[in-house]
Simulated assay, not measured.
Amino acid sequence: MKTIAHISDLHFGTELPVLAAALRDELQSNPPSLLVVSGDLTQRARRRQFSAARQYLDELPQPQLVVPGNHDVPLYDVVRRFLFPLTRYRKLVTDELDPIFEDGDLFVAGLNSARSLTWKSGRLSLEQIEALRARLLATRAAFKIVVTHHPFIPPPKGSSEARIDLVGRAAQALAVLDAGKVDLLLAGHLHHGYSGDTRPYYPGNRAIVSAQAGTVFSRRVRPSDPNGYNRITLNGNSIRIEVRTWQERRFESLRTTHYQRVEDGWHIVE
């Protein structure tokens, strides 16, 4: 059995210190097998915000897999945005933009979807997709997971705006993920926690579970979506996604969704 704590959209610069401390204490008292951070560590990609994010990550359990988000690319510093978009991230957080974690049972590939030429949208490059194809063919892990900042599927009641924010080249990537028998996709960006499978949006492929995390402790929260994160349990042919949200003084379980592995991918267990 493996457990993953999936947090996203920390947005240092707009963080709520009480929530950040509570999350740190919760993860330290019940460490996951892997901590995944799916982007937007900062609000405006400033040095002090990256330094705060780095210090905070150092207080959380290891191992960790971290990818950048669009807010980790400078917005108003035009020179840095186009010439050195992720220099501060690479210097102060991690030099790995497409990190890999593998322990025999678990294979997790992070892909940087943040781009300088867009304000908030993101995409994957053809080179990233091909490199992932090779890695998926090489691994024999029981569970295969891909992490991006931008999502592959919209919220259950999708909107045109949400669809614009889906990761670019998603359909091309899904063909590779399908052939490589990926089980789970993790992302953030929308500040909206939800899960589903990919088949309704990419017909003809296996059903891959996609789990979104809301913003874990930023003030930039949606009115209908409290601060929270996902605690995911992988066990044999089962994926359990527990959404833990902030309830007055602590993170508490809001809902749990179960998926079962079947011949054509993963199906929700009602």
Rank of each mutant, 00 (worst) to 15 (best):
R46L: 15
R46W: 13
F50D: 03
S51N: 14
A52Q: 13
A53V: 05
R54D: 07
Q55E: 14
L57Y: 01
D58L: 13
E59L: 15
E59N: 12
P61S: 08
Q62V: 01
P63T: 05
Q64E: 04
L65N: 02
L65V: 01
V67D: 07
V67C: 05
P68F: 08
G69V: 02
G69Q: 09
G69L: 08
G69N: 12
H71D: 05
V73T: 09
P74A: 09
P74F: 09
L75A: 13
L75F: 14
L75H: 14
L75M: 14
Y76R: 15
Y76L: 15
D77P: 06
V78Y: 13
V78T: 15
R80Q: 12
R80L: 07
R81W: 00
F82Q: 10
F82Y: 15
L83V: 12
F84V: 10
F84G: 02
F84S: 13
L86T: 11
T87R: 15
T87L: 13
T87H: 14
K91Y: 11
K91G: 10
T94I: 05
T94G: 02
D95P: 10
E96W: 13
E96G: 00
L97T: 11
D98F: 10
D98G: 10
D98I: 08
P99H: 10
F101L: 04
E102L: 02
E102G: 08
D103S: 06
D103F: 06
G104V: 07
G104L: 09
G104K: 01
D105M: 07
D105R: 11
D105C: 04
D105H: 08
D105G: 13
D105W: 04
F107Q: 06
V108Q: 07
V108L: 05
A109Y: 10
G110C: 04
G110P: 02
G110H: 06
L111C: 03
L111H: 00
L111G: 00
L111T: 00
